[in-house]
Design a protein around this nucleic acid. Sequence first.
DNA 1: GTGTGTCGTTCTGTCTACACTTTTGTATTG
DNA 2: CAATACAAAAGTGTAGACAGAACGACACAC
Lengths: 238, 238
Amino acid sequence: MKTEAKPKLARSASRVYDRVQQMAITYAFKPGERINEVELAAKLNVSRTPLRESLNRLVAEGFLVVKPNLGFFRRSLDPEEVYHLYDLRCSLEVQSSKLAAERATDEAMESLVQMVSAEEEPDNELELLRQDEAFHIKIAELTGNPELVNMLRGVNNRIHFARWIDRRARRNSREEHIAIARAIASRDPDEAGRLMDSHIRRRYQQIVEIIKIGYGEIFAGANEISSISADNSKTAAE
Amino acid sequence: MKTEAKPKLARSASRVYDRVQQMAITYAFKPGERINEVELAAKLNVSRTPLRESLNRLVAEGFLVVKPNLGFFRRSLDPEEVYHLYDLRCSLEVQSSKLAAERATDEAMESLVQMVSAEEEPDNELELLRQDEAFHIKIAELTGNPELVNMLRGVNNRIHFARWIDRRARRNSREEHIAIARAIASRDPDEAGRLMDSHIRRRYQQIVEIIKIGYGEIFAGANEISSISADNSKTAAE
DNA sequence: GTGTGTCGTTCTGTCTACACTTTTGTATTG
DNA sequence: CAATACAAAAGTGTAGACAGAACGACACAC
């Protein structure tokens, strides 16, 4: 129970946004569920106004949909949609690895190789997933294109749960990551792209299976789903 | 002057959103400009509440940024940012053309070829740009991935003005379009991707030049910039 | 028993009011 | 005259109130 009454008023919306986004990512809202504004606002200790602003952002990000005079709903968990997102992610990452191999500085490449080499076999699954996400984001960053990074983050957030469900299949990820990093470091775009493609594509062939499991975990208790701090702050211009 | 008083109350926000988005796309807000909520709300004949909800969506879409206690600002027009967006667009479209060549049905491909063949040399530049955008979106649609289409639309909206400035360089587009369509129709992903890559990449080599002109046109009078009806409605889940 | 109409509740969509912050303009002081 | 302090104005961030739509319950008619 939060005992901190209300320290300051300004800028509560920002925190509200972060929290609501995390709830969306971790499926604290069940698929298709209607979001009760007054109830949620009370839970977050704010009025409906800043809450609604946050919800509107989540609509733009693809987490929610709005139906006229009915309010906000969590998007239904459509296997086909998740498949499309995985497909999109694959496209983005294949291009990322190609561009990274072409453009990244030698130092940046070195830091990538070092990153995967230094990775210890993590003890818990959450850490494993975090490493995985960090690796893929890192490659996108090597392209030097922050818009690409943002877009990838957005897509990743929307399929976060699927990657979480799929975490146990991530056993041999490490060798693949090393291979990809090597291909990039040796400035071989085609090889890097090819490896990345198979690395990702293999996963989502069984996407329907994953979704099925996902439904179970979600409705069993959404808070069980890992909530990696998905810091997808947009690049602040200016 | 709008004489229609207020026919109905519900769902005015939706129209507000459309209008404000168009204003953002066409740079009715100057780069870096602070957006005065009360003023704009008055101009749109609504209160600040629905306006702010729209503005928040535009933040999520990358058109605006928000500074604490200072409000909403149009993102600054950074040539580097536009370059990144063109780069991102290029990635998305190269992948789109590849995937289209692999996945599209014969009928869909046929309709693409027919589309470019039927295109008459348009009399005005606006129509030319519209044809161009329609062609590229069509290819994305051939992939069968609506998420990809949405992303591409989002990116396109953000560089709409640059394509408008660059419209006169679009002279030999038609032949290139035909070549791309042919490559897709003959199910040759690599060739399609290669053609698309050079088709787009050639444009944004001179992006800095384009931006320079863009600044002129924007500050001369933003309403001059073509406002193609950019119908980027998100795919409504459910 | 089934279908339909009406009333009451709940919740959204919007407006208005207010607190707080930033900015601007002015006057005072060195 | 410049610089600073201060006061007023403007504008954002949030809360709360109100009108209307959607939903459900209940009663009535057939």
